[in-house]
Amino acid sequence: MRTSTLGGTGVRVTELSFGAAAIGNLFRPVTDEAAYDTVEAAWEAGVRTFDTAPHYGLGLSERRLGAALRGRDRDTYTVSTKVGRLLEPEAEGGLGDDLVQGFAVPATHHRVWDFSADGVLRSLEASLDRLGLDRVDIALLHDPDHHAEQALTEAYPALERLRAEGVVKAIGIGVNQCALPARFLRETDIDVVLLAGRYTLLEQEGLAEVLPEAAARGRSIIVGGVFNSGLLTDPRPGATYDYAPAPAHVLDRALRMKAVTERHGVPLRAAALRFPLGHPAVASVLSGARSAEEVRDTVDQLRRTVPAELWDELRAEGLLPPHVPVPAARPEWSR
């Protein structure tokens, strides 16, 4: 599988990254065995970049990912985790579940927003313990939307020091909006932006500022949320977009895209996976999975040839702006 280097860091990422939220019981339970098999399937497919966070299942994602990677040569893979939410134990172990936050796990802990320098250190230390690793390669500020000033003035300098000391190799921000990462690209020396849902086949808000800023400054983008919460896997009434039912006009646009891709013999999800890699700033596409079968399907879709005529027809139908870059017809790593 093709790899790229994040900015000037030396950190290598595979063209497809594994998103570990689902193995943290996102929305519904996954067994330990299924979680292990999911990571194993990604490894067998050549994926060597794995993204997790304390937020995912109150640490369950980190624990399961670490267990699945244990025993492998640490220099052969890249791990990304996040800071900004500390996990604090609930009194008497907690009651109920964490589904209000999206995870089918017991509510043994609660999250505390903390973008202080001390919070960064405490978060990374706890993550390393859960992962069972002596280091992570990438540390990202996680959703600092409502904590921008503290993230800029306290958390970012702490990450910068950790990078200078070699504790982490790359630093950045992970968000699902564009204004804040554009500001970080302008005002800081971050290496990477994990941008979720804002540079997809369906919408290209990130092309206005974030991706050009990254390209101009030699920084990298990892694109997550390429299916816009599932809409681009199976557009139909009731499908979700940005974690809510898709508005009628958005659903109609997705259905029109599906009709075009299928006329060219390409599933919509295959075109959605390939699309972000057409931009030179995009180093990797991040996709989650909760089973080995989902991993294998994702890899199969990403390996498909997407003909240039498909992109041309999307443009002709007014479904893709003419200035948006598109990927080569045949992915390099399938040759």
Rank of each mutant, 00 (worst) to 15 (best):
G10M: 07
G10V: 10
R12N: 15
T14E: 06
S17Y: 06
F18G: 09
A20C: 06
A21I: 04
A22N: 12
N25H: 13
N25D: 09
N25C: 15
L26P: 06
R28G: 15
T31Y: 03
T31K: 05
A35Q: 12
A42S: 10
W43R: 08
T52S: 08
T52G: 12
P54K: 10
G57I: 04
L58G: 05
E62L: 00
G66Y: 00
G71Y: 04
D73N: 12
D73E: 09
D75Q: 10
T76V: 03
T78M: 03
S80N: 05
V83Q: 08
E88H: 10
P89R: 06
P89M: 05
E90Y: 05
E92M: 08
G93E: 14
G93Q: 08
L99C: 15
V100P: 07
V100N: 14
G102H: 04
F103N: 03
F103W: 03
V105R: 08
P106H: 03
A107R: 14
H110A: 06
F115M: 10
L121S: 15
S123N: 14
S123E: 08
E125V: 09
L128N: 01
G132M: 13
D134G: 15
R135Q: 07
L140E: 11
L141R: 05
L141W: 05
P144R: 01
D145A: 07
H147D: 11
Q150I: 09
A151W: 04
A151D: 08
A151M: 02
A155N: 08
L159A: 11
R163M: 06
A164D: 12
G166N: 00
I171W: 04
G172W: 01
G174T: 06
Q177K: 00
C178A: 12
L180I: 11
L180E: 01
R183M: 12
F184T: 14
F184L: 15
L185H: 08
T188L: 02
T188R: 05
D189H: 14
Y199S: 07
T200Q: 03
L202D: 00
Q204S: 07
E205M: 00
L207E: 09
A215M: 12
G218M: 05
G224K: 00
G225Y: 00
G225T: 04
V226N: 01
L231H: 00
L231K: 02
L231Q: 04
D234C: 11
P235Y: 01
P235Q: 02
A239K: 01
Y243R: 06
A244D: 14
P245V: 12
P247H: 05
V250K: 09
R256N: 10
M257N: 04
V260Y: 02
V260M: 03
E262S: 01
H264S: 13
L268A: 07
A270G: 08
L273Y: 02
L277A: 07
P280C: 13
A283W: 00
S284W: 03
S291L: 07
E293F: 15
E293M: 13
R296T: 04
R296K: 14
Q301N: 15
R303C: 05
R303W: 07
A316Q: 13
E317P: 04
L319D: 09
P322V: 15
P325H: 07
V326K: 00
A328I: 14
A329Y: 01
P331A: 03
E332I: 13
